[in-house]
Design a protein around this nucleic acid. Sequence first.
DNA 1: ACAGTTGTTGCACAGCAGTGCAAGTTTGTC
DNA 2: GACAAACTTGCACTGCTGTGCAACAACTGT
Lengths: 337, 337
Amino acid sequence: MAKAKLRPKKSSVSASKVAEVAGVSRSAVSRTFTDGASVSPETRAKVLAAAEKLGYHVNHLARGLIHHRSGIVCLIVAEMQTPFQASFVEAATRSLQDKGKVVMVLNTAGKPANVEAALRQTLNYRAEATVVVSGAPPRSLVETCIENGQRVILINRNDAIEGPQFVMIENEAAATEACFILRRAGCTRLAVVSSTAGTPSIVARETAFVDAAQAAGIEVLVNRAGPTGYASGAESARQLLAGANRPDGVFCVTDLLALGFLDAARIEFRLRIPEDLCVMGFDDIAAAGWLGYDLTTFRQPIAEIADHIAGMLEDEDGGPAQMHFPARVVWRRTVRP
Amino acid sequence: MAKAKLRPKKSSVSASKVAEVAGVSRSAVSRTFTDGASVSPETRAKVLAAAEKLGYHVNHLARGLIHHRSGIVCLIVAEMQTPFQASFVEAATRSLQDKGKVVMVLNTAGKPANVEAALRQTLNYRAEATVVVSGAPPRSLVETCIENGQRVILINRNDAIEGPQFVMIENEAAATEACFILRRAGCTRLAVVSSTAGTPSIVARETAFVDAAQAAGIEVLVNRAGPTGYASGAESARQLLAGANRPDGVFCVTDLLALGFLDAARIEFRLRIPEDLCVMGFDDIAAAGWLGYDLTTFRQPIAEIADHIAGMLEDEDGGPAQMHFPARVVWRRTVRP
DNA sequence: ACAGTTGTTGCACAGCAGTGCAAGTTTGTC
DNA sequence: GACAAACTTGCACTGCTGTGCAACAACTGT
């Protein structure tokens, strides 16, 4: 029982301690760390010396309390280990940090119920903004967020809610273009490989592709073998390519699906790409550019989107309620030119 | 100028507003949202009703101010779009959220200088703990963090600093085993594909492999073509396989390197794997299990590590200063059994 | 030397929530 | 009905910082 201190909670050093050591008032300390405040060079120097000595760092929690701006931006995301989501989080954290924000990542772990909990955290921590990358947030909570002065940004959602801002990829235009490209490559039996996830992006791509094909008078096979991932893509290949009337042009709504599809097509069905079969993907994840794949796909301008989001938080009035970004074709070798 | 309100800063609703609406004291509101506090069922109900009506959410910033525990855990990470880092961040956020923590991700964007800035943010936001996944934090700042009562956890670093806790993968044991496995597969000309990044993990794997081979009397070619990634792996293959005395057993210190190496070996050099050449990787990223690769590699127990980290933050006294996790072989088809 | 200007500093309060303490209320028991 | 015990409730203070205001010092120009 020599050290009976049960909780060695070393309370972190505060401004008043610095003031004491520096021999000035607490206000002086505060002003030293506030841009544009009036402090004489001498006191400033004394404060900085004391702060350095004690290891003082302004408490942003307390600062946020006063300013009504915590500096925190929440990112609500699921499946963040997948290439596209991971790239997005990476880009977003970078852009937001550049603007002086700090990013809180709320992982919904795929369970829709957790989206609500995440949104609650967003309110608890008085985040300045919330970016919903995946999942469908309950409308009422979104409204609560906005009423509390929070910015809400929904990525690739087309809900008709008043209040939040939307950032959208032009999925329809891209899917339509995919159909055009495959037809121009001479494909006559088209298929779209989708997933059972049913997120707005995926549905939009799938639907637009089917619509475009039907407008051209071509019937399309739609296959959804499971969740959005490599394994489902491979499984779709097994289902689509085993039949008699196998497709010769396939649009996969996601690169991961496309890679699984490609591997199964080449390895299990010994098909030559693009001679026997043209394949297009979506997202342009890193693996799409690997030697073994060389996948023709669509690139989402992730960096631009991230910059745009960070920029939105800068101007008070908020900017447009909707912002659209194009997805551009990245030509590689899984489609005949 | 109809709406001259320049700043529509809707200040978020506070406990006193709820108290007013509910017709009780502010303390009652506070107690309603504090576990184990004494409130009668009636007042509790009144408070909850008012809170729901107003959309009240406890301000965790203010709460953290009193409790000296913000609930925030910082994750300092670089290159988080790469498969392994992304998986780690995913697992960590999940485990920490399960324990009631909230994760702040600080992206150092690869620049070592940013590690320092990130550590400062950690102090500014009074994080309860900081997990350094990548980058070498300045020793003095780490000490400041610890003096301020913060937990610091370094992943895969072997610095001799007193204070932080370490979580390590048994890189040496795995690399040694890799050497054994390749030799047992009949490989006689070994090489290790590494990177110029020079992070502790990579150096440890590389060094241990070379040591193990030398102990067995085999010389090893070491190749570092660039940063840790697919392209470098492919480039290493070009450099190593073009020579006369080409290796027949290669240990890549990272799966990404291995996949690049494999693709280049198969496509550009038309080598058969594992007949002509055995390849091992490290990390067991998702792509390692894809049909086209089927890479024999080592799995890092990411989920266990994440759980362990989250657990460490639960017990006051902190637990052991070092914790080691094994990396287990995942047998697939790039090595002869 | 004096009035006026400019710059610095400290006081005191605000912002939000948790909690010890004392006063108040209800319940229980004999 | 009296008294103790148990529970509720509000007050007032705490934690940490930013800032308006007033007091103060220094400096300028005449």
